[in-house]
Design a protein around this nucleic acid. Sequence first.
DNA 1: CATAATTATGAGCAAATATTCAGGTCTTGC
DNA 2: GCAAGACCTGAATATTTGCTCATAATTATG
Lengths: 205, 205
Amino acid sequence: MSSDQRRIQPRKQPRQVRAELTRQRILTAAAHVFGEHGYAAGTTNRIAERAGISIGSLYQYFPNKDAILGELLVRHLDDGMAIAERVQREQLPGPIDQVFRVFIRGAIESHLGEPRLLRMLREQAPQTNELLEKVERMKRSLDAYMRELLDGHPEVRVADTETAARLIVTTVELVIHQLVADHEPVDVGRLEDELVAMLTRYVKG
Amino acid sequence: MSSDQRRIQPRKQPRQVRAELTRQRILTAAAHVFGEHGYAAGTTNRIAERAGISIGSLYQYFPNKDAILGELLVRHLDDGMAIAERVQREQLPGPIDQVFRVFIRGAIESHLGEPRLLRMLREQAPQTNELLEKVERMKRSLDAYMRELLDGHPEVRVADTETAARLIVTTVELVIHQLVADHEPVDVGRLEDELVAMLTRYVKG
DNA sequence: CATAATTATGAGCAAATATTCAGGTCTTGC
DNA sequence: GCAAGACCTGAATATTTGCTCATAATTATG
């Protein structure tokens, strides 16, 4: 008989190496399948097929479809925060264009692996549950960090630093998502240069 | 027996006024339902219910669910192109910041009606068929238009106008989509001002 | 080698949802 | 006012898909 409340934890903690391998296969396959078909059309059976395992095995390690996407999302968010913290620690204080460049380069690099998946994550993943909170928290962290940076930097001259910070963070994230995953992907070097130029000129006034 | 290939055309061309009215009701209801629940959870039955008609009537005018979304997307794209053409006709030549302002204001206005729907359209609609082509065609038109504008304007000083044009068009579209439909929506006036400032300073160098 | 523990399998269940169709109701044209 | 066509209805059907569970295969243990 089934329990009243939905299981959140994975069914099983892998004890053997082959189990951990299966888990990884599932995540890798899911990244491909979600990126290619989107969330709704990325069925668990398709994921299992692509991973070369049976559907039953998939449900031994993930309680449901959402959990798979959740794991992928959490990994990406953690990557993003790590980049921001590294920039803040190593690049400040310094010329504003250099700060932007390192920030932007980090963002670009973290999107080269599975661009279509990451775009999908932003768009269709957080419909539900506590992942929403994690995403919102991270967004606010980034906005606040950028605002501090603008407020404290001598070269910066914008009237409304709150709106500006939000605009900058949103722009960097969305534009990279879009253009890296585009049908005709841009040259990432040029994209980096132009994005740095745009933001630098903007905040210098 | 069912035909081998999927029907693309609507079942029926409306001949009476009530029929055309029903078609409109369906589209209006679909815009609400898709915007509120997303594509997957925006079921055809829900749309029919919201439109105050029976599910059978819905399938008299649209061969399937995709077709409804397609119609909504096409309408939005047509709106977008109309704005761009109007700006090009009425605002050129003129101060570059003014051109940007009219362009941006138009884009913002066209997203105030059903922001959540429009964001969803961008994200989940073009998965299939010939809509992809229409979207791509429009994207290229906009990019080309913006590049002409940059190339021909005396105030503009950017090295790589091709990348710059793409960056600008993408930025305007995505940022507006995102921030207008955000959990804490921005003040659209401020957004307009900052966006204009950013782009103007960028291209002036 | 024997027993237990872990992992893998995949046909099939149940729920959700898109779509059909046989039979009604309303409009139009004469 | 009366056919004929246009339009509408909604219970029934077809399809999709997340997920389970009884069973088998593999690996660890001693």
